[in-house]
Design a protein around this nucleic acid. Structure first.
Lengths: 223, 223
DNA sequence: GGCAAAATTAATGTATACATTAAAGTATTT
DNA sequence: AAATACTTTAATGTATACATTAATTTTGCC
């Protein structure tokens, strides 16, 4: 009855449901009862139930009594919350990474992610762009070395993923971000703490207000 | 088989285990298998297992294969992580609260918490002091209105609670904190954004380095 | 007595069973 | 036909059962 690999059924259910939600295969507001989820995932209710508890704790899903699991929509207000936190955390994390004077080898994956963003833009592949952008931000946090911080921000990225993907398609191609990332990388290379913090803060201020402006201009209260 | 109130057995198990860990009734490193926990809490393994999943997600507990649930110790490094995040988040949150120009009624619970801290110090009741200090910080975050931020910080407080309680007893009475809180309150009242941020930052820098210094001087790598 | 192999114990992950109860559907009455 | 009472359905939370497997103990052998 056991799974051969290190992944339990509950883990399996968790990743599949999370990716279904991220990729909009289970759209916001979508409600599905546990027994149905269980048959769909080819397992019993138990591991599904455990996965749902985790997803609920991470704010991806709401467990509605007697109805099932509901995919939580993201509102403009939610995005304000999330970006408010990112604006406080990411610049500080970047600044502290700068203070550690990271060497070229450590920064290589950041360069790679940023190059991938440029390449994706040239191909007009917005999904690839977003994936590379995620990679840039998450890698930076991992380099900084605060696991709690990295995990929390990662969960905020998960929660906001859908909204970011929608707004990405409602605006001009995001050409500025790669340039801003390059500036951040330059400051990181120099070990310039305040420069890194300021550059990252500007980057997050801009992306944040751009995104929220789109949500409000297009009257997208729910995503 | 249902519980009359709105609290499920799983919720009950969660709160009881969490408080047992916080209050050191289940000390760091302590390992207990699920069946034992279940009998101790007077319920079956199922709700206990679900509670443990949540506690694991919050970093209070580690599920050791074939052994049970282990209460995670907090290291000096963990405290550095946690306070690194608090130093970034709390001053920003306080600054934004200042920007909202909170009225006297909103700030009253903060005054109350700070007064309770003073009273507790006069009584020499460090537990009451810590509880009131927690209340001050959590109330401020709740007033600020970012639920994700408040919940995350609350979980960081839970994780660090034991270590804070131990170090609290290894040093002079914390008389400075109430004074610093008063300064923060003064800036909040004036709606002074930068003043609030700076005051809170100084407060957190000081408490943070004090605490970590104690952990290192007393060679307390695990709590 | 010490060590290897076998047997036992015990814990987990998962499945299944079941009581409870909300919601939906049907029947009954006016 | 509308409103109400009754029945049925279905979902959850929890308990229990069970297969798998790691840890422990016992046994047998030198």
């Amino acid at each position: 009855m056991h799974v051969l690999s290190g992944k339990s059924r509950a883990d399996e259910a968790y990743s599949r449901l999370k990716s279904d939600i991220r990729e909009n295969r289970m759209p916001p507001g979508y409600l599905e009862p546990e027994p149905e989820l269980a048959t769909r995932l080819g397992m019993s209710r138990t591991p599904v139930h455990e996965a749902l508890i985790r997803l609920q704790a991470e704010g991806m899903v709401e467990l509605v009594p007697r109805r099932g699991a509901r995919v939580l929509p993201i509102s403009a207000e939610d995005m304000r919350e999330i970006y408010g936190i990112l604006k406080a955390l990411e610049p500080e994390a970047a600044a502290r990474l700068a203070a550690q004077n990271p060497d070229e080898r450590a920064l290589a994956p950041l360069d790679a992610a940023n190059d991938a963003m440029t390449a994706a833009l040239e191909d007009g592949d917005l999904d690839a762009w977003a994936a590379a952008d995620d990679r840039f931000h998450q890698t930076l946090l991992r380099l900084h070395g605060n696991r709690r911080l990295a995990q929390f921000v990662s969960s905020l990225f998960d929660q906001s993923h859908r909204a970011r993907m929608v707004t990405l398609r409602l605006r001009e191609p995001p050409i500025i971000s790669t340039a801003e990332h390059r500036v951040i990388l330059e400051f990181l290379r120099r070990g310039d703490v305040d420069g890194t913090r300021d550059a990252f803060r500007r980057h997050r201020e801009r992306t944040s207000s751009e995104l929220i402006a789109i949500l409000e201009n297009y009257r997208l209260p729910q995503l």
